[in-house]
Nucleic acid binder design. Structure first.
Lengths: 353, 353
DNA sequence: CCATATCATGTTTACGTGAACATGCAACAA
DNA sequence: TTGTTGCATGTTCACGTAAACATGATATGG
């Protein structure tokens, strides 16, 4: 049992762990008012050079660090940006998060991750509850917008938002890779190589990116007066690519496959290998993403490179503009992709490499 | 319903974007004091059931959300856990972060990402400055500890810390995959298949995991009375695996390669293919990580599976224990790996599959 | 010379919360 | 009855910061 201590020493010692240096401490040491310390800390101009140096010295001596909680309470700004996404399982999410975090750090913002445990309605709502409890100045949402619509989700009013992987450009600020252009590039590349038809392994329809890529693939074929074959609907995983491709490889007329991401392309290539057909001599394969590994697949995969760094940068730039500007904006900004031609594609009937 | 508004209407309207519902608003509506609202919000028991319901109703009506900044200022707890790591470029980092974020969310903590732009001394120090400016209750550091030592880094005193990828168990709480056991599993697997020697493509020496795997590989060979060949030092990338393996594949006596991660294993397999040798008939390859794709490599890669979910869970559990307990702990907790045998390994001189 | 503008700096206050302490009421024992 | 206990609830205050306002000193113009 703990009898109350007469002197506050014991408590002090225990609390001192958390106890940090405040403006008042700095002010005392520098012989100025707290307000002057505040001015120096925030880089205001109207402070005498001598005084400023004295304050800076005191800060350094005491190891002063501003208390963000107090600052956030006072100013309503937390210096933190929230990111809501399903788990980091997809390559795109992971790269996007990475790029956002880097760009945010660059601008002096921290990144608060608000993961969604499983893609259920309730879990998404939970994420927004957690979000509204966290002090964030803005949010980047990396979930297709229709999920937002279907859930009874209320974005805190006036909270700046940028959405990735969505077509909600009329209502929100949207930044994304130009999925349409990318898929066109992939499909056209195969057509240009002389393939009379291009089969497509798509991502899950719940993903806007996936739907958009499929749409573009279809349009590109139709523009070439080709009737698109049925879509094979995958779920981004190598396994799904493998299983779906198995139905294709037995048919000799299938000579070109466009997979909606590199992982499914990898799975498809595995099925092709197992069927004893040659890539690209017998079948050409194009992926989408350009992961770090795809250049080392066997054979090295022709794919669409996404510029995630640019996407992340734009997200943060637009978000900060909204935060500082104080008003919501709308509109869609797309980042172009480029085709990375490697050895998994060749002219119809052509030779590898 | 709405209380009559006074002359400050215009200002109010403009500010109302950020202006959120406070305890005072709830208190007024429920006809109680702010303190009672606080008690309800924090689940204290000494509130009459009737009163509690009235307050909860008012909260719901107004859409009350506690202000974390104010709470953090008052309590010294932010409900947020910081994660410091180099960019998400490695599979391990990415999975670890994912697991940490999930486990933290599960415990009601947000995850604040503090990325390090480039692995320079200054950048690491910067991260710690940003850290100390962010209100976090604890930190998970996913950087080898010797980097911490070499930089003039001061961890805020008393801040609970858990370190991943380190051997600093005597000074900190360390959670990690059992790298040693994993590398032993990999090496022994190849020896058990009858290979007289196992070559090793390692990760960068700056990584503790890499060093540890190399150490274990060497020890396992020595325990079998085999003199380890020179280590080939890679950098985790497929490219490095590819380039390093090229020097190996020309030598027929090389029949077994243990790469310190799946990406380098993939690169090595590419070099093997290009040299015209068969996997696993002519050379066996083992990786480390068990990425989502490795089962679809050609051939499917035998590798060491890491349980990142367990690592993340343990990080958070131990961190929260320190946060709640209020005292630092030390000690190392290792999570076991398991061998996933696929088709990239076979008995010496054996047949594929 | 004084009036006034200018600028560095100090003082007061409020942001929203929750701990500590105060109050008031009901139940109960003596 | 009256004091005592226990419990629900209210009041006061401080956390660290920065905006708003106040002050006092110096420079400038007529």
């Amino acid at each position: 049992m703990n009898p109350p201590t007469d002197s506050s020493d014991a408590l002090r010692a225990r609390k001192s762990i958390e106890r940090s240096v405040s403006m008042a401490d700095v002010a005392k040491l520098a012989g100025v008012s707290g307000q002057t310390v505040s001015r120096v800390a925030n880089g205001h101009s109207n402070v005498d050079a001598t005084t400023r140096d004295r304050v800076l010295d005191a800060m350094k001596t005491l190891g002063y660090r501003p208390n963000v909680a107090a600052r956030a309470l006072r100013t309503g700004r937390s210096g933190s940006i929230g990111v809501i996404m399903f788990s980091l399982s997809t390559f795109g999410n992971r790269k996007t998060l990475d790029a956002i975090a880097m760009a945010a750090a660059d601008e002096g913002y921290a990144t608060t991750l608000i993961p969604i445990l499983h893609p259920s309605q309730g879990a998404v709502s939970d994420a927004f509850v957690r979000l509204s409890e966290q002090a964030v100045d803005g949010v980047v949402i990396v979930i297709e917008a229709h999920v937002l619509d279907s859930a009874e989700i209320v974005l805190p009013a006036g909270l700046p938002v940028v959405i990735v992987d969505s077509d909600a450009g009329e209502r929100y600020t949207v930044v994304d890779t130009d999925q349409y252009q990318g898929a066109q590039l992939a499909t056209q590349h195969l057509l240009d190589l002389g393939h009379p038809q291009v089969w497509h392994i798509s991502g899950p329809p719940s993903s806007f990116s996936a739907a958009r890529r499929t749409q573009s693939w279809r349009a590109t074929l139709e523009a070439a007066n080709i009737v698109p074959p049925p879509v094979l609907i995958g779920d981004w995983s190598t396994t799904s690519g493998y299983e779906l491709a198995q139905s294709l490889v037995a048919r000799p007329e299938v000579t070109a496959i466009f997979a909606a991401n590199d992982q499914m392309a990898l799975g498809a290539m595995m099925a092709i290998h197992e069927a004893g057909r040659e890539i690209p001599a017998s079948i050409s394969v194009v992926g989408f993403d350009d992961t770090e590994e795809s250049g080392a697949f066997w054979p090295p995969l022709t794919t669409i490179h996404q510029d995630f760094v640019a996407v992340g940068r734009l997200c943060i730039d637009k978000l900060i503009a909204e935060i500082v500007g104080g008003h919501d904006t709308t509109g869609t900004t797309l980042v172009a992709t480029r085709l990375v031609a490697r050895s998994s594609t060749a002219p119809l009937g052509g030779t590898p490499h």
